[in-house]
Simulated assay, not measured.
Amino acid sequence: MAYDVAQLLTMSQKALDDLFTASPPGDIPNGQAKGTAIIAPGTVYSQDIAEVINLFGWQGKVFDAERGLLKNSITLFHVQAIIARVYKGASWLDGKECIVLDYSETSVVAHYVRDEIRLIGPGFYLGKVYWKKDRLIDFCLQF
C-alpha cells in the first residue's frame, strides 16, 4: 500500500507503530527531504499542528549519506543546523534494524535526541523521535 502525508496524519499511534515495525529500514537516504511532524496522531488537530511546525519550526532534513551526517532545516529561513550522525542500528521500538539519526555527539541543543526512520514507500520514511529513551512524536520525510 502506498502512503501519503495526509494518511499518516489521520492514523492512530498504534497504526503508526504497526506501520513502522512492519517496514524495512531501507537505504540511508541522500539529499533534501521535506519533513512533517506527526503530533496528536489520529486527531483533528494533527494537520493544523503539522502545518504550524512546518512553517515556523522544522521543515525537514538534508542527508549526506556518504559522510553519514544530516542537518535539520529549521526556522522561517530554512537554516540548516542541528547535525546528527546517521547509521543503521537496532530500533528502540522493536529491536529490528532501522536508520538511526543520532544527535548525542554532534549537538548541544539536541544531545538527548535520537530519531529512527524506516522506509514506508519510495523516497518516503516514517520516523520516531526519542528524548533519552522516552518516545516523543512521530514524523515523516519525503525525498
Rank of each mutant, 00 (worst) to 15 (best):
S73C: 13
W92I: 04
D27Y: 07
K88R: 15
N54P: 02
K34E: 14
L119Q: 14
K96W: 08
S46D: 06
N72R: 01
G42Y: 06
T75N: 11
A15S: 15
L136H: 10
A33L: 11
A65Q: 13
P29F: 13
E51S: 09
A40H: 02
Y87N: 07
M1R: 13
D48N: 09
L101F: 05
K14F: 04
R114I: 08
D102T: 10
G123E: 06
V109C: 04
R135S: 12
V100R: 13
D138E: 07
A50E: 04
I82A: 12
Q13K: 13
D102H: 09
I53H: 00
N30L: 08
K128G: 01
L119I: 03
A110N: 03
D134Q: 10
G95P: 14
E97A: 15
Q32D: 11
V52H: 07
G35M: 05
S91P: 11
P25S: 12
F56N: 10
D17P: 00
L101W: 01
P24A: 15
V44M: 14
G121K: 06
G42P: 00
Q59R: 13
T106G: 02
E66S: 15
M1F: 13
E116D: 06
V5C: 14
G95D: 13
M11H: 05
A110C: 12
G35S: 04
K132A: 12
